[in-house]
Design a protein around this nucleic acid. Structure first.
Lengths: 220, 220
DNA sequence: AAATTTCTTTGACATACATCAAATATTCTT
DNA sequence: AAGAATATTTGATGTATGTCAAAGAAATTT
């Protein structure tokens, strides 16, 4: 990014991202109803975001890892409408939204960046709607695993091995399935030799098979 | 909005919204893969947006009416990732996104407005995820009807009567249900005296009952 | 290290919704 | 206006996933 910025610009951009906050595993970064002030860039750790209905049902709306931004839900009403919970000890950069907006007005590159982040989230959720509305359990879990390793790989981790940071229940909530169904589907993939699972450890043996499940070919 | 703007400002804002485009019923405003250039503000008419999987399954991701903005999905990749189809003859304002960004930099009120629109869409989709992941058919349809009349009422229409612009199949796609289930659920509500349905015409007789279905009370 | 709690797996059974099918109603086409 | 195409309703039946239950594994607490 530091192209076309002078020293003063860089200092101000640096400042945006200067305040840090640590969140312990299981801790809340923000919750439903909290006043919205800032966006958060995850430096380390892993989060889930979830919404709850009046009668207590929980829907996980996303899992976020280092480099990703959370808090966008708060902009519209100045209050957060979901909970952000750390699934492991985490550290975030606190970016006061007024500063984000001020700097966005000055730096078109940053402005565009912010817009892309929000658009990306909209598109991601479109994909989840397709998953929840049209796909079967195996397709959902295959899509989930492929998405996770892809994001981890982009961060320099293995593209075939991963440690899940979330429980079967949280995966199920995200995918619109019960934890038993998630567990059974893991076992099925394992029996078929597609993956190796041992609790939170997953080894993707046959990524092509997963892709085929996620995106079944129309065969004539 | 016209507070703190001089004549020149107003002219430029007016220009943003000067280009119009008509879309016939059934016509595409944009489709998956189209280059992204503009956001569209609906002036008249009614749209659906939908995504399709490789094997041809369609997921309706939203229904949009006058005053709402479509096209946000295109920002992230400079290509649209969904289709926008007019469900009745429609007219939109074409707002080139470079102009939106330029004016946003100059007018913080507009900037904030754009951010809120994007955040609102994210929050809406969170709600749909809850619907698709956790709710039963009756809850989904109740939520759908309440949301529709609420938005129509905000536009000066009745809060108890509406004409559906979409088919049972499109409602089903949006709600993750088959068209038969949508039809049966309409019939059930009708038998229970909650609504009166005659094809596309719906009269909400007992909105409280709908709210109760959507948001069941925990009774002790 | 033992005890407790939380998480995961697996089996047996239940159910909400899907699928298939056919009859009507409505809208569009000629 | 007649005929064709599309949309809706309703019934009979099937199935993917949910629910309930219990045992085993892992993590946490004392």
């Amino acid at each position: 990014m530091p192209v076309g910025f002078n020293t003063d610009d860089l200092m101000r951009l640096d400042e945006l991202v200067a305040t840090r906050k640590k969140v312990k595993q299981g801790g809340l970064l923000f919750s439903e109803g909290d006043a919205f002030t800032s966006l958060y860039a995850i430096r380390t750790g892993f989060f889930k975001t979830c919404v709850t209905s009046e009668d207590g049902r929980e829907q996980v709306t996303g899992f976020q890892m280092a480099g990703e931004i959370i808090g966008l839900d708060g902009i519209v009403s100045d209050f957060h409408s979901c909970n952000a919970i750390a699934l492991e000890d985490a550290e975030v950069c606190v970016m006061p939204f007024v500063n984000v907006e001020e700097l966005s007005r000055e730096f078109p590159v940053l402005q565009r960046h912010v817009h892309k982040i929000m658009s990306r989230e909209i598109v991601r959720e479109n994909g989840i709607m397709m998953l929840l509305g049209n796909m079967r359990a195996e397709e959902r879990l295959a899509a989930f695993l492929l998405n996770l390793v892809q994001r981890l790989h982009a961060r320099g981790f293995s593209q075939s091995e991963l440690i899940l940071r979330m429980t079967r229940e949280e995966i199920g909530s995200y995918l619109g399935l019960k934890l038993e169904t998630v567990s059974r589907t893991f076992s099925k993939f394992s029996e078929e030799g597609i993956i190796e699972v041992k609790q939170r450890y997953v080894h993707i043996i046959d990524p092509e098979a997963l892709k085929k499940i996620f995106n079944p070919q129309v065969c004539y």
